[in-house]
């Protein structure tokens, strides 16, 4: 993995809102196929970081480079076109369409066919949409109304949509929030498999330490807008500062993590 090229490089990224420094001088790199977790207390600046990476929020200073290209200050749809897929903490899908149509819309947009009045959407790129759904094990749900899906299935659909633009980088904001523990593990395994196969870099935020410690290759710890630690799961878990600020005594996750690992 160390030989893979740098996919994303963030240099001294900062954001302040009216005098409040939400993010201060955050720098890190991410390689293709690598899974990087961003953790920290609520309000540490994780979401702000995410929003800056995908263009939802403008940074106050600093640079974001995707495959050598400067994307600082680009709009979300421009960043998306450069190959960044995103899933949201609260799933964002199109509830009045079928599962397949959800993916088809993303494909239409990727192929710049949105103003094509003559095409019929329900028949557009059916095969490719089907492949994407197969990839996230949703092939059997293609014709279902998206509004009827269970929460875990919605998360997988969101992943399929996020993969429609053949992304090089996936940004996942609390991908497993609100899911049952087993579903969490399945979703993260799926994500990891796709990331390795397609050499996609994944950056995710997460509060469930079991997911983080099990699936992240590397972890960044953010506190009050500053990176306070970076390293392998083991290094981060042992870091006394991270324990004091964030992880605590391990009463509410450690044991569970061990169980999950042995299961």
């Amino acid at each position: 993995m160390s030989t893979a090229p740098t996919l994303l490089s963030v240099e001294r990224l900062s954001k302040s809102y009216g005098g409040v420094h939400a993010v201060r001088g955050v720098s890190f790199e991410l390689k293709g196929g690598e899974i990087l977790a961003l953790i920290g207390p609520n309000g540490a600046g994780k979401s702000t970081c995410f929003d800056m990476l995908n263009g939802q929020t403008r940074s106050s200073s600093g640079r974001i480079k995707l495959l050598g290209q400067d994307t600082t200050g680009r709009k979300p749809r421009e960043v998306w076109r450069l190959g960044v897929g995103r899933t949201f903490q609260i799933t964002a899908t199109f509830p009045t369409m079928t599962v397949r149509e959800n993916v088809q819309v993303a494909l239409l947009s990727f192929r710049r066919q949105l103003f094509n009045v003559w095409a019929s959407t329900p028949r557009f790129a059916e095969v490719e949409a089907g492949h994407l759904l197969e990839l996230v094990a949703m092939g059997g749900y293609a014709e279902r109304p998206c509004g009827e899906l269970a929460y875990g299935d919605l998360k997988r659909l969101e992943l399929a949509i996020a993969l429609a633009n053949e992304p090089k980088l996936l940004l996942m904001d609390e991908p497993t929030a609100g899911m049952a523990p087993r579903e969490r593990i399945e979703l993260m395994r799926l994500t990891a498999r796709i990331a390795r196969e397609k050499s996609i870099g994944v950056l995710f935020t997460e509060h469930d330490m079991d997911v983080v410690f099990e699936h992240a290759d590397r972890i960044l710890v953010l506190n009050r807008g500053t990176l306070i630690a970076e390293g392998s799961p083991e290094q981060v878990r042992r870091n006394p500062e991270v324990r004091a600020i964030y992880l605590g005594e391990g009463l509410v996750y450690d044991a569970r993590h061990r169980e999950g690992a042995s299961a």
């Binding site: 609520n42 929030a177 509060h207 004091a244 964030y246 605590g248 391990g250 009463l251 509410v252």
Partner: peptide, 14 residues
């Protein structure tokens, strides 16, 4: 009450 909170805060909640 513990959803989405840092583990350390969850301990305070206990």
């Amino acid at each position: 009450p513990s959803e989405g909170l840092a583990p350390r805060i969850v301990e305070q909640m206990v």
